[in-house]
């Protein structure tokens, strides 16, 4: 356990610089976006009202009120979030391959640690989970702050104030609802599926690391097989439309299968790390 925590900390530190850059970029771009977009809206309103004497109500009727939801759709939000997602997905691979490739042969050290080798995998996975949740957590803290900044710039008559859950729930902007679901159960579902994929991917990578060229084939097969196993009840529904199982039963079955796939991935990974992996 102690070794696991130390390893998680170690894995975090190895990516922390890029991670901090991602966080910094997110914070700066989003806040700049809120300021610029708010100003732009306000300028438009001022122009309409003072130069063309458009009444406030009419302006609001034509342009709608301003709110954080409008900034959500712009590149100021989408680009940092997209880049962070891409960086973390890329790191899911790199977190393994960086130990094998390059001048160093750090994998020797990792595999020779006097601790279960599965801990190395769990630490890598945990580091990824922490970084994913950390970024989303920062986004959660950032949204009310951005909301406040918006309130400083745009007067009450021209804006809609929304809490984070209203922002997610009402406007249901695909990506925001995906990363910050309003319901805790949906949160567990989304991130459970996400983390399950990380475990499946790690097992596929270990297949490659164990059997090299042949391992790529094994890895791809495993990745597909795991997906099929997980989605089996849903695929049956889609292809055969039997409707035999009630939705709630499929839901429970999916939870069990998801846990099963995670368990299976860990078990195979453990076997590969102890018996098949090669430096």
């Amino acid at each position: 356990m102690k070794n696991y925590v130390k390893l998680v900390d170690f894995e975090l530190k190895r990516f922390i610089k890029i991670y901090f850059v991602l966080i910094g970029m997110t914070i700066v771009l989003q806040i700049v976006g809120v300021i610029l977009e708010s100003r732009q809206y306000l300028d438009k309103a001022t122009e309409a009202m003072y130069e063309y004497s458009v009444p406030l109500m009419e302006f609001v009727g034509q342009n709608g009120k301003f709110g954080l939801h409008r900034v959500l759709e712009t590149g100021y939000f989408m680009i940092p979030i997209g880049l962070s997602v891409a960086a973390l997905i890329f790191y899911c691979f790199f977190i393994w391959y960086r130990d094998w490739f390059g001048k160093n042969t750090f994998v020797y050290r990792l595999l020779m640690l006097p601790t279960a080798r599965l801990n190395v995998l769990l630490a890598k996975a945990s580091a990824i989970f922490l970084m994913v949740l950390g970024l989303v957590g920062i986004q959660l803290i950032l949204l009310p702050i951005e909301s406040t900044i918006l309130q400083w710039i745009v007067p009450l008559d021209l804006r809609i104030d929304m809490s984070v859950s209203e922002l997610v729930g009402q406007f249901g902007y695909g990506y925001l609802g995906l990363i910050i679901p309003n319901s805790f159960i949906q949160f567990l579902i989304n991130y459970g599926i996400g983390f399950m994929h990380v475990f499946i991917l790690f097992t596929a990578i270990l297949f490659e690391r164990s059997f090299r060229l042949r391992g790529i084939v094994y890895g791809v097969i495993y990745y597909i097989a795991a997906q099929v196993l997980f989605l089996f009840p849903i695929m049956i529904e889609v292809f055969f439309e039997t409707g035999y199982l009630y939705p709630i039963e499929i839901f429970i079955l999916e939870i069990i299968l998801g846990l099963l796939v995670i368990g299976l991935s860990l078990w195979i990974s453990n076997y590969l790390l102890n018996r098949k992996v090669t430096v």
């Binding site: 190895r14 001048k103 160093n104 042969t105 750090f106 020797y108 050290r109 020779m112 006097p114």
Partner: peptide
Amino acid sequence: FEKITFIPDAITML
């Protein structure tokens, strides 16, 4: 691994 160690021909640290 507390009893035996290996020093490969390349360094095993980052």
